[in-house]
Nucleic acid binder design. Structure first.
Length: 267
DNA sequence: GTGTCATGCGTAT
DNA sequence: TACGCCTGACACG
């Protein structure tokens, strides 16, 4: 169940094993047989992520585009390779390593123009954080008359934030998720971008979403936090805020639950 | 075993 | 706003 950090981490770790290698590809489940046959035997040049999308570019110039959606999952296996699951959409392997993909929302072969078009649909990605991205984010979000809790889930405004980071980032800047983006001052929106950069990059490094400042739970290091101590707001409704002790609230925003602290993030 | 829920998103109404 | 897609983990009986 992936937000942007998962895909960037996948691109980095899978790249170590497959970049520059001639790979075999198959679709045990059968729903990607045509694409797998097309890419089978090609050399994988690079793996690249933007937001929640990942692109595998091959020497023909074509790319495998994957979006995991809510259910997609990767597994990496070493020899002896286990039997692939019946739901395995893509199996890609060399002699040393095998990548197993099940349940992706999107899985297709794109030509270079289609890759550019797919990338263009996405807003700036905090993990990439190119020069100008921060200003571009502020520009895109500040003109929207929609709640911040909806705006930061819009991948054309900022790419990579999902439901966990939504609640955690708005907690960190102390802003209620129902505040309209257009009514939020640019300085605060800039802080929101800065927190996104820090938190998503941390998530990419560690492979887990941990937003809590250890001080708030009496620990010394983030790595010492238990599973239940890692987040401030997400799925903590009814519990006490780790920072101010007030109640954590929840409500549906855009069909997904959002969580916030009644004290730290007043309406 | 069955039912529910989940870190997502596109399309139809 | 509702539904369809896609899988797996967990709670419950």
């Amino acid at each position: 169940m992936p937000e942007g950090h998962v895909l960037h981490r996948a691109a980095r770790l899978q790249g170590k094993r497959f970049n520059g290698k001639e790979v075999s590809m198959a679709s045990p489940q059968g729903r990607f047989s045509e694409g797998a046959a097309q890419l089978d035997g090609q050399t994988l040049e690079t793996i690249h992520a933007k937001g929640k999308h990942i692109f595998y570019r091959f020497d023909s110039g074509d790319s495998l585009h994957v979006h995991l959606g809510l259910f997609g999952k990767y597994r990496i296996n070493k020899p002896p390779f286990p039997e692939p699951s019946p739901n395995c959409r893509v199996l890609m392997w060399t002699d040393e390593c095998e990548l197993h993909l099940a349940g992706p929302n999107q899985c297709r072969v794109l030509d270079p123009d289609e890759v550019v078009a797919a990338l263009d649909r996405l807003g700036p990605d905090p993990i990439v954080n190119d020069p100008g991205d921060r200003d571009e984010f502020i520009k895109r979000i500040h003109k929207r008359k929609i709640p911040l809790g909806r705006a930061i889930m819009d991948q054309s405004i900022v790419a990579g934030i999902g439901n966990v980071y939504r609640s955690e980032l708005l907690f960190q800047i102390g802003v209620n998720p129902f505040r309209l983006a257009a009514d939020t001052d640019p300085e605060t929106l800039g802080q929101l971008w800065d927190h996104s950069v820090v938190e998503l990059k941390a998530g990419e490094r560690v492979g887990k979403i941990i937003t809590v400042d250890p001080i708030d739970v009496g620990a010394e290091k983030r790595s010492q936090l238990t599973r239940g101590e890692r987040l401030y707001a997400y799925k903590r409704d009814g519990k006490d805020c780790r920072r101010c002790g007030d109640f954590i609230m929840s409500a549906d925003i855009d069909g997904r639950n959002a969580w916030w602290c009644a004290g730290c993030q007043p309406a």
